[in-house]
Amino acid sequence: MTKLLLSLHVLAAVLAVGPVTVAASMFPGALRRAHSAPGDREQVAGLRTLHRICRVYAGIGIAVPAFGFATAGSLDVLGNGWLITSIVLTAAAAAVLGLLILPAQDQALTAAQASGPGPALPPAARLALLTGVFNLLWATVTVLMIVRPGSTTGA
């Protein structure tokens, strides 16, 4: 059962977190292009698509910690420091995505869709920074999951 849970955890991470990291990373560039070509429907459609990918896959991403907790329980490693650190970093990544990135993308999309003078687009640089932090948190979690300090696997 542990192997099945671990497989589902890894698959959920790849299939849910991967698209969010890519789409969120692409959003600031698309925002810059939309800002330089106001009224361009294709640019706005691109922003809309990237934001939808981020929103939908963020929701699907809840499966990652769910399978992770099940796997950790079956491996009896819930109290290990590397896992607790990974849980905290995962929660931080989720907070950055849900509380900072997605609302900023939503605001940018609303501004880009507004006809005539509307609210200013949020700075793409801030979104790029937030996305970089999100991606760095996930990269750190990935390394912790593989290296597992104190592991006897020789990794």
Results as ranks from 00 to 15, higher is better:
15 L>K: 03
109 L>I: 05
111 A>C: 09
145 M>G: 02
121 L>T: 01
44 V>H: 08
83 L>E: 09
4 L>H: 12
127 L>Y: 05
152 T>Y: 10
45 A>R: 15
5 L>R: 11
9 H>D: 06
127 L>G: 08
155 A>H: 14
44 V>P: 08
68 G>D: 03
33 R>A: 15
88 V>L: 15
13 A>M: 05
97 L>I: 03
35 H>S: 15
68 G>S: 13
102 L>I: 09
125 A>Q: 09
1 M>R: 11
35 H>D: 14
65 P>H: 09
41 R>E: 14
28 P>M: 02
27 F>Q: 00
45 A>L: 11
32 R>L: 10
142 T>G: 09
152 T>L: 14
129 L>H: 13
97 L>Y: 04
83 L>W: 15
80 N>W: 11
40 D>P: 03
36 S>N: 13
65 P>W: 10
84 I>Q: 12
15 L>M: 11
69 F>E: 13
67 F>Q: 07
92 A>V: 09
95 A>N: 08
18 G>T: 03
29 G>F: 00
78 L>N: 08
39 G>E: 02
88 V>G: 09
10 V>E: 08
111 A>S: 14
135 N>G: 00
129 L>M: 14
37 A>G: 05
2 T>Q: 12
148 R>I: 06
6 L>H: 08
126 R>D: 14
75 L>I: 01
1 M>P: 12
33 R>V: 07
90 T>V: 13
60 I>N: 04
108 A>C: 01
47 L>V: 02
82 W>Y: 13
36 S>Q: 14
124 A>D: 01
124 A>Y: 01
59 G>I: 04
18 G>A: 01
149 P>I: 01
109 L>S: 06
87 I>D: 07
4 L>K: 12
122 P>G: 03
124 A>N: 00
118 G>L: 09
13 A>D: 04
88 V>M: 11
139 A>D: 06
72 A>E: 08
68 G>R: 07
102 L>T: 01
124 A>F: 00
51 H>F: 03
24 A>N: 04
145 M>A: 10
80 N>S: 15
2 T>C: 11
37 A>Q: 14
31 L>D: 00
69 F>N: 07
132 G>S: 05
14 V>M: 12
100 L>S: 12
22 V>R: 00
97 L>D: 05
4 L>N: 13
147 V>W: 14
51 H>Y: 05
